[in-house]
Nucleic acid binder design. Structure first.
Lengths: 365, 365
DNA sequence: TTGAAAGCGCTAACAC
DNA sequence: GTGTTAGCGCTTTCAA
């Protein structure tokens, strides 16, 4: 006894398979009595429509996908999460959690399900293809999958790139969403310069291949230009976007001697948090001796002491927007590629010298 | 020009469709030269295998599913998350985020993708069917979907119930995973009684239909029995598991007059956090005047002042375990139903009277 | 090692 | 309103 199909239900209800199909796809088109018979038959047989068959026949799955990088060490099977107390390594992932959340909600409202796939650094990179074969369209977090694969797949179905400007010219025709990295960092830096009167600021950037990091640095530059200060040509330090690297980075900055900066702008919160730890160790007071700010708005930034001033990215909204674009694109495949920039907001906390609680979030688009 | 299929690739490569299929499913079974030709053809055509067709032909999707409740107000489209600062309402959802995370990882390692679906309270409850039709098996958070639906679907494919003991006898034959609610609450209560010398404890439970809540209360009772104290027959108060209700609950407890309790044990962290707020308002000092403890281990519990003593559930592990069970069940459909109880750990923070930082997490299975 | 052919369970014209 | 009939794109024997 295998799973019942439309044929079984049809026979049991004394109708044709087409009618069974109609009852599920478009109940109104079937007379109430017939519909009832079909439903009873289906229930007694335990019929569950096959998504695969449906998808094949209708050439549409009603599933949207999301590919994102899995930052965590894939081998750390038992070494993570559940044993440590509270927000720790796992904060790293909140970023994608929020996006997932946003997409799931938005998708569901529109009658789509969400298929998620993290690309383990190790795994074979046919990840995209795996996903692509099962969905009507999908979103990809920048730098998650090889551009080549994406190019091919994007010819077949809608793809929207998330967070991180078009990383490759060949992906120019894709819809894409980014956050206001430039404007956010500009506003944040301006706050440091104008409101706190700081003059000597250092920037700790990411490796040059991160478009987000570069855009943030340009915002940092712009704030200097705007204030008539000397515009730095490049980040004072470049590092990986981790806490450990953040610690290392401040360490280096302060060891340099010469005129110590009055404030350090980090390309992300993780590094800034790491720096905070290191600074405490070094006996450098934040914000009295040195202001520290980040970028992202991870919850951890609120836990640390002093609480971290930062720029919050609207991750949830990012997910929602992705679904919007996907659905729109599904409806009109040949519309012009869309490029959306989501506004961010500066979150003022203690680490820049503001009194805590002064959490005005000002939008910067 | 529609998407290329096996036929197109086969023609282009000068082989049969069977060979194309083999190249994807079992490359070893095709001669290297032939394989190469097929792969080149596929690449130039931009071929992406159809998951639906594959699923239909092979009767297996290589996708696992997860159904969970969406706690948030579905209408609050623009009113949430991105605008408020830091952990707030969104903490409510971390629970499922962690499970998703755990399942995704575990699934991926085993070559499965993850389909997630939150059931909006509003939406039609065919959610399960939607998911069921597209996956090889799935996990369900207790009380997410109607038992009736589940029963039918479980006849066709593996289902594992998460968190919350078998809620219905008819679901007895399902695999299921729960956390050590009883043991956890027992250990926590014992800590209050033995280590802090508290005698008059109140329990704020959930509505009686929550199996988790009831199990926790039994743990609470057991600790009393163990200590030779009078065993309470029922929770002092019952409430919904929200912060607002937590506030209301303590308010009520303290207003009663008579002998005020020395400590309050809440069935979950949310309520406990709400209580903390209310107690501050009332000028009751925690833990000096009143000890407060929760259950769950949400990050918010660490943010509040005083930090909340609680019992942490291993959410991530829950997700991983779910995949394990599902995969095992897929391999042997007729094995005995499995019932797993995951160990929890007591997290001692300030709210019970411990000094902060004393975060021994002791496992209790 | 490769090919031919028969479905997998459903949808979508198109008739009636 | 309902039935008939082709496929949808792939996997999978079974032969060759």
């Amino acid at each position: 006894m295998s799973a019942p199909t439309v044929y079984d239900v049809a026979e049991q209800a004394g109708v044709s398979i087409a009618t069974v199909s109609r009852v599920y796809r478009n109940p109104e088109s079937v007379r109430a009595g017939t519909r009832e018979r079909v439903m009873v038959a289906a229930r007694t047989l335990g019929y569950v429509p096959s998504g695969s068959a449906r998808g094949l026949a209708s050439r549409t799955t009603r599933v949207l996908g999301l590919c994102f990088p899995d930052y965590a060490d894939p081998d750390a099977e038992d070494a993570d999460g559940d044993t440590d107390d509270g927000p720790g390594e796992s904060e790293l992932m909140l970023y994608s959690d929020e996006i997932i959340r946003g997409m799931e909600r938005a998708a569901r409202r529109r009658g789509y399900a969400l298929l998620i796939a993290a690309s383990l650094a190790q795994g074979p990179e046919n990840l995209v293809a795996e996903v692509a074969g099962r969905v009507d369209g999908f979103a990809v977090l920048a730098q998650t999958v090889p551009v080549g694969d994406l190019e091919i797949i994007a010819r077949r179905l809608p793809v929207v790139m998330l967070a991180g400007p078009r990383e490759d010219a060949s992906l120019d025709h894709l819809d894409h969403i980014e956050v206001a990295n430039f404007d956010g960092e500009l506003a944040l830096t301006r706050h440091l310069i104008v409101d706190h009167g700081l003059r000597r600021l250092a920037f700790v950037g990411s490796t040059p291949d991160s478009p987000d990091g570069e855009a943030r640095f340009r915002g940092f530059q712009a704030a200097h230009r705007e204030a008539g200060l000397r515009v730095p040509e490049r980040p004072d330090v470049r590092a990986e976007l981790t806490q450990a690297e953040g610690r290392r980075a401040v360490g280096g900055l302060l060891a340099t001697g010469g005129d110590r900066p009055e404030g350090v702008v980090f390309a992300n919160d993780q590094m800034a948090v790491g720096a905070l730890t290191e600074l405490r160790r070094l006996g450098v007071r934040v914000p009295e001796d040195l202001a520290v700010v980040g970028f992202d708005g991870i919850p951890l930034g609120q836990l640390v002491a002093p609480a971290l001033t930062t720029v919050r990215q609207p991750m949830r909204r990012l997910g929602e927007k992705a679904v919007e674009l996907l659905v729109a694109r599904l409806e009109d495949r040949r519309a012009e590629p869309v490029s959306v920039v989501l506004p961010v907001s500066v979150i003022r906390r203690r680490s820049c010298g503001c009194k805590d609680g002064n959490t005005d979030s000002v939008m910067h688009s």
